[in-house]
Amino acid sequence: MKKIASLLFLFAMVLTSCTGDQGPVGPPGLTGSPGAPGEDGGIIVSSAFEIEVDFNTDNGFSHTEAYGNNFEVHETDVTLVYMSWETIDGKDIWRLLPQSVIFDDGTLVYNYDFTQTDVRFFLDGTKNLTTLDDEWTQKQFFRVVVIPADNLGVDVSNLNAVMEANNITNFEIK
């Protein structure tokens, strides 16, 4: 038994002591960091705004909002929309769209789509939208966050995590 244990130990030592090619040199780091000096990387900052929307038959239960001159939205950027869902102990609770509400006579879906120039909020579902009470259609608050594709390594379902990861400290009110 001791011989088998000794052979296994010797075999493990041989395998762990092997080395291979060093590999190619990686890209230069930030100026001031150890290693070869490189250029400082830019901070990728997201654009964000908050908007209040009223849905009704006149607007087809839809609202389109242009990003405006303050935004530079690239084709690879991603737009996320959060809805103020409720307030608990004075704290606003935000949910990532789409969100569904189930009624006895159908389902209401808050949804959105986006282009490089605007974002559209709309109501959808199987519920007759004209029968909805004002609490479901009036004074609906949304937060829109445009995220550069480079920053998508974050849990987008958590608004606070998205804000922190993208250096967002406040929202422009539209």
Rank of each mutant, 00 (worst) to 15 (best):
Y67E: 10
G68A: 05
G68H: 07
N69W: 03
F71G: 04
F71E: 09
V73K: 04
D77F: 02
V78M: 05
T79G: 06
L80I: 09
M83Q: 05
M83F: 04
M83D: 06
S84H: 15
S84R: 15
T87I: 12
I88K: 14
I88Y: 12
I88S: 13
D89T: 00
D89E: 10
K91C: 07
K91D: 10
D92L: 07
D92V: 14
D92F: 10
D92K: 15
W94K: 14
L96M: 12
P98A: 08
P98D: 11
V101W: 02
I102V: 14
T107Q: 14
V109C: 06
V109T: 15
Y110A: 03
N111K: 10
Y112T: 02
D113V: 06
D113A: 04
D113R: 02
D113F: 02
T115Y: 08
T115L: 02
T115I: 03
T115D: 04
Q116M: 13
T117S: 11
V119N: 02
V119W: 01
V119P: 08
R120D: 06
R120N: 05
F121S: 06
D124H: 09
G125L: 11
T126S: 15
T126M: 06
T126K: 03
K127W: 05
K127T: 03
L129T: 05
T131Y: 01
L132K: 06
D133A: 14
W136C: 09
W136Q: 10
W136S: 03
T137G: 04
K139N: 12
K139V: 03
K139C: 00
Q140W: 07
F142A: 07
F142M: 04
R143E: 00
V144A: 03
V145T: 00
V145Q: 01
V146Q: 11
I147A: 01
P148K: 13
A149W: 03
D150C: 12
D150W: 05
N151E: 14
N151Y: 10
N151C: 13
G153M: 04
G153L: 12
G153C: 01
D155Y: 14
D155F: 14
V156L: 08
S157Y: 10
N158W: 02
N158M: 11
L159H: 04
N160F: 04
N160V: 07
V162M: 12
V162E: 10
V162R: 05
M163A: 15
A165I: 08
N166C: 15
N166R: 13
N167F: 13
